[in-house]
Design a protein around this nucleic acid. Structure first.
Lengths: 343, 343
DNA sequence: GAATGTGAAGATAGCGCTAACACGCCCGCC
DNA sequence: GGCGGGCGTGTTAGCGCTATCTTCACATTC
């Protein structure tokens, strides 16, 4: 608020308190002040105390840019997500943010819009800030991006998907197996003509794989039952996909959507058109968004723990950034089949 | 990818290309390279060209930390939102992000969790990074926070709400008036016992004001018809509020929720319990989230342009950061009453 | 034709901080 | 009694870039 500082000849000062002001007030050298505040190296308790008092009195806040420049690494962590416009992403980010923020890190969020090119661009840009850590979504990316990540030497945790490559850290669950689980459930319930609806994105395509696996194993697989679209998952998109599906294939007796949003759209459409769910056609989703418990009928879906993934990933990254060993480089948080009335 | 650099005695180099490497390759001085790449000052076209070529050849990326340190400002913009877990926030952030990213800025997103203390903490933290600009949500904040913003001298744009204080820049709409518009509409439709449901947060409270204004003007105001809760807006919360409302006040003939999520919860509950909407009770929401067009019955709501607000705010901030005059410091993007079948 | 002005380029000095090394000092050891 | 060896502290030299001042060539003015 007050407390002016005497300024150097050049007059290029920024006006705020610097470490030097703290050092002067505490009557120690610059480096001792630095060490005391960072808690590194050996500083006697008395001096450390004096420095901290001085810093508090002067309301000193370290300059992250100077810190980054001198130490050649920042306190920033970059998180790359495929979209910001999605409740699942929101859950994940909230959790990541909370954990990293508490640990004193700055979280930089990048939105790739499900584009490899955009991801590469963002990676290049964010990496120039020398973040201390990296969290990226899944494994679908350009070779260039992969190279940038590996070449940066920055600890990186992959979220949502799982991989068994040595040296790769990830927190997620088996998307394909989850898709398979749901399809199997529908098969067990006696459904034979199970359609699959999705927007084309990496996770959805993994779920599609699971769907195909189960359908093929049951001998019911029919490519004509797959309804895939480009674009973003939304209620509207789900309504459209569902309308198209029942028109083109009136024989469908169940439909599995790779995403709750899509399933909600289908549910609304069914309700409006008087199509009985699940009697005429069963509907299932994926993610277990909150509203699924309230729709009419409530939605059968796969529960995924976005917040849990975010938390675990952030914690794993913290460990990696400390330079410690990670006991479990691949964390499978699992998923859960939530059976409600829609299927 | 390759190209090692000879290193200084201290051996403290970071391994990446520096401006010096570019200058050497282009056979110009350091400062000329700097000027050429930044496009400031006077550099002859030939030299500028040579520098740019050298930079491209070396795959040079400027170090933001060094830049920030030397020039005492960064290329970062801080955006503070009350929650990440909300489709409306997602829309806004996407738009802000897109505009600022294109202009070469780094977007730092902070999540205040609707807490003044948290906002203050974040402000202190983010301000230490010397961001070039600031976007904050609304006007409800601590005196300390206000002081931090004003004292920082950093251009700041407020979003979602409007204010007429000189020197304050904002992009939003009149939340109270929007609440009033909806309430008036319900009154016009002949409803007399209009309940109001909301979670307690600044914007909702402004909408509540509008609700009260209209109800009082019509002589129908009854404090017992307000159902406010602490917490986050959600479908579940809406279902709970609605259940409580109709139990405590079975005479309610309409209910206006400050938020579409809440209204959806109410709609689902009504559907499940066989309550006719709008015949027995009309339901209205706020925000015009996508799904409102698909619910049964479709939701009457207030359309707000989150993406538009984000875009305009980012553009205004860009202007301010260039040091230019802003023609219109208060941008009212308005809102629109969307009449559907629920009311 | 000397004084003045006008770019274009460079030299220099930091921005605020930390890494690396240097220096005392006290301890214990043979 | 001398000597290695921690340990606490300080000195120095940057990190990679930009602000500021200077220089210098060349054009302009009376």
């Amino acid at each position: 608020m007050q407390a002016f500082r005497s300024r150097n000849k050049a007059g290029r000062a920024t006006g705020r308190m610097t470490l030097k002001d703290v050092a002067v007030r505490a009557e120690v050298s610059l480096i001792t002040a630095s060490r005391a505040l960072r808690g590194v190296g050996r500083v006697s308790p008395e001096l450390a105390e004096r420095v901290k008092e001085a810093a508090a009195a002067l309301n000193y806040v370290p300059d992250p840019a100077a810190r980054a420049l001198a130490s050649s690494h920042s306190m920033a962590v970059t998180v790359l997500v495929p979209t910001l416009n999605n409740p699942a992403t929101g859950d994940l980010l909230e959790a990541v943010h909370a954990v990293l923020q508490d640990a004193g890190f700055q979280v930089l969020i990048g939105d790739t819009h499900y584009s490899r090119e955009q991801e590469e661009r963002l990676l290049r840009n964010y990496l120039s800030h020398r973040p201390r850590g990296l969290i990226v979504t899944g494994f679908d990316r350009s070779e260039e991006s992969r190279g940038l990540i590996a070449g940066s030497g920055i600890p990186c945790v992959h979220v949502l998907e799982l991989a068994n490559t040595p040296g790769v850290y990830c927190v997620g669950f088996d998307q394909a197996k989850a898709g398979e689980t749901m399809t199997r459930y529908l098969l067990e319930k006696g459904h034979r003509r199970i359609a699959f609806g999705a927007v084309i994105d990496p996770r959805s395509m993994l779920r599609a794989e699971g769907y195909r696996r189960a359908a093929k194993a049951a001998g019911t697989y029919d490519p004509g039952l797959e309804f895939l679209r480009a674009g973003y998952a939304s209620i509207r998109m789900g309504a459209e996909i569902f309308a198209e599906a029942i028109e083109r294939r009136p024989d469908i007796d169940a439909m599995f959507f790779s995403n709750d949003d899509l399933a909600h759209g289908a549910l609304f459409t069914a309700l409006r058109r008087g199509i009985q769910v699940p009697e005429q056609i069963a509907i299932a989703g994926f993610n277990n968004l909150e509203e699924g418990a309230y729709t009419v009928p409530p939605l059968t879906t796969i529960h995924t723990s976005r917040a849990g993934i975010g938390r675990r990933a952030a914690q794993m990254l913290l460990t990696l950034m400390r330079g410690e060993e990670v006991a479990e480089p691949v964390v499978d948080v699992g998923y859960e089949l939530i059976v409600r009335e829609s299927a």
